[in-house]
Amino acid sequence: MEVLMSVVIGIIFSVSIYLFLSKSIIRVILGSLLISHGVHLLLITMSGLQRGGPPLLGLEAEAYTDPLPQALVLTAIVISFGVTAFLLVMAYRTFKEHKTDNLEELRGSADE
């Protein structure tokens, strides 16, 4: 499973970097959304998958899946939500001000 997941994570990263390199600001934001999925899965995968029950002591399982990456990822999910929201609104405002979503056209002038 870990090998499979590693490949999947690689694909996520490839796709999101490809999106980052495009001209449209929307694609860049979609890329950042996808890359956060990649990071979350990477964190979970690196510690090993399905090493025991869910980390709930009430289940009284013999072994538990590593809870620490899960706590990290939970934090990361919420933060990436905040970041995505911020990026989205920034794109929205940029479009309102400049009437374009093309990053090439949004470049600052040379004398700045």
């Binding site: 919420v78 939500f81 905040g82 929201a85 989205l88 609104v89 309102k96």
Partner: peptide, 18 residues
């Protein structure tokens, strides 16, 4: 904070009708 932030973000965009 989570409720407040999520709602603030979404309402800020939704209310912006200009």
């Amino acid at each position: 904070v989570v409720v407040g932030a999520a709602m603030t973000i979404i309402l800020a965009i939704a209310e912006d009708d200009k």
